[in-house]
Amino acid sequence: MTPEIYARALKVAPEALRPGLSRRLTNWGLVALCGLAFVAMCVDLELAPESFLLGLGKLARFIAISMPPSDGGDLPRIVSALAETFAMALAGTVIAALVALPLGILGAKTVVRQPVLHFAFRRSLDWFRGVPALVWALILVSAFGLGPFGGVIALALADIPSLAKLFSEAIENADEKPIDGVRAAGTPPLLALRYGLAPQVIPVMASQVLFFLESNFRNAAVLGIVGAGGIGFELEERIRIFAFDQVAFIVGLYMICVAGLDTVSQWLRQRLA
């Protein structure tokens, strides 16, 4: 019975009956290649199971130490470092937004109507998108000395290219019709932008800035690691002396604060939308 069915099916749709051998081979070959590459990378990184297990053991010990979290009797200092961290985040984000606004306007296709110029401008912003704040902070601290000043600039520098890009896109995506409408009423160009464009793009931009603010509340904590102010320094110090009970306390407090600030910011973003 089966051979007969097979023969009939072969007559009807031969290529569907047996998916081309070459296609199957390339599929499996690709899978095998990816798997091999992955293993090769792991080997090259010396990711050994023994050291992993060893580390897990240590980690378990750290967690055991951390169990009743404690403030180490220095609560005021921790709180003030936390406040400094969040202050840095707010200041850095505001500076980034202020700088990104003119850059974003210049980067919008609808504003700078010269394609080559527009392309060059956008691409040069793209280059520095993705450089982490810590990388900026490292050099800024060594240039401007220890303290939060370098941290604020680092946060701003890390955000400016991305924010500028988002601002440009917001402007490009704005509907032209309301602007034309206002302009048709005989309004001068600048005012036309004020009443035609601004109401469209400002809520979008504000919501993007809030989004970056949220992410900076998280990222600002790391700046202290290189001495750029805030809670990171306190954390690093305590990790170095294995005072994990205090680490747990700080991290817990930090996470609670971030969750609270997130709620506020999300509420604001929802009101904007």
Binding site: T2, R8, L10, L17
Partner: peptide, 9 residues
């Protein structure tokens, strides 16, 4: 192959 053949039919 038998399943594929039946599906085609």
């Amino acid at each position: 192959a038998a399943d594929r053949a039946r599906a085609i039919l």
